[in-house]
Amino acid sequence: MIVRIMGEGQVKLADSHFTELNKLDDELLAEMESGDESGFRRTLGALLDKVRELGDVLPDDALEPSELILPAPDATLDEVREMLSDDGLIPG
């Protein structure tokens, strides 16, 4: 799956990693719902770091369609809320 981190670029990520990423996504969703700004910041950073760690960065000139778009590391709670689906940022 091709994942775009807004403001950074694209990463190719194996589907097998989504169970691990969904745990962080669930934690992020809970922190957003409770208004835990510091927890939200920490978990968003951990989620993006994990995507970077597990994925392969695509070259800047690659024009692959992104199947999943994640917020920039400095995104606000409100900006991320606008990106959410019922499943959080990561479906499944």
Rank of each mutant, 00 (worst) to 15 (best):
L21C: 12
A72I: 02
D36R: 07
G9V: 09
G45K: 12
G92Q: 12
I5H: 09
P71D: 05
S34E: 12
L58E: 03
E8D: 06
L13M: 06
P59C: 05
R81I: 00
S85I: 12
L47K: 06
A14F: 13
S66M: 04
D60P: 03
D74L: 14
Q10W: 07
T19R: 10
E27I: 11
L58S: 01
G39I: 07
I5V: 08
L24K: 08
K12T: 07
R42G: 09
R42L: 11
I69N: 12
L77T: 01
T76A: 06
V80H: 09
L68M: 03
E20Q: 14
G7P: 05
E37P: 00
E27Y: 13
P91R: 15
A62M: 00
V80T: 03
E8W: 10
K50H: 12
L48E: 05
T43N: 04
M83C: 04
D49G: 08
L68H: 01
L63T: 09
S85V: 01
L84H: 07
L63A: 13
P91A: 14
G35P: 01
L77D: 00
A75P: 00
D78R: 14
E79D: 02
V51G: 10
K50I: 08
D56L: 08
A75W: 07
V80I: 02
S66G: 08
V51W: 05
S66P: 03
G55Q: 08
V11R: 02
P59Q: 07
G88M: 01
D56E: 15
E27F: 12
L28Y: 03
I69R: 10
V51I: 15
D74F: 05
D61N: 11
L47Q: 03
G35M: 04
P59M: 11
G45H: 12
A72L: 05
K50R: 15
D86I: 15
D61Q: 02
L84N: 01
I90Q: 02
I5N: 03
P91S: 14
L54H: 03
E82G: 12
E37W: 07
G39V: 09
V80A: 09
D87T: 14
E33G: 05
L44K: 08
E27V: 13
D60K: 07
D87A: 14
I69F: 11
P71F: 02
G55M: 06
V3S: 02
L58F: 08
D25H: 03
R52E: 13
S34Q: 13
V11E: 05
G92L: 14
L68P: 10
L70H: 06
V57E: 08
A72E: 08
D86G: 12
E37C: 02
A72K: 07
L84P: 01
D87C: 14
D36Y: 08
K12Q: 14
A30D: 14
R4P: 07
L21Q: 05
L70A: 10
G88Y: 07
R52M: 04
D86M: 15
G88N: 06
I69W: 06
P91Y: 13
G55C: 11
E53T: 13
D87F: 14
S16P: 01
R4V: 02
D25L: 09
L13I: 11
M6G: 02
E82R: 13
A30K: 12
P59W: 00
D60E: 06
D61G: 09
T43R: 00
V51K: 00
D87N: 14
V57N: 07
L24G: 02
L89Q: 08
R41C: 00
I5S: 01
A14Q: 15
D25A: 14
Q10G: 04
L63K: 11
L58W: 06
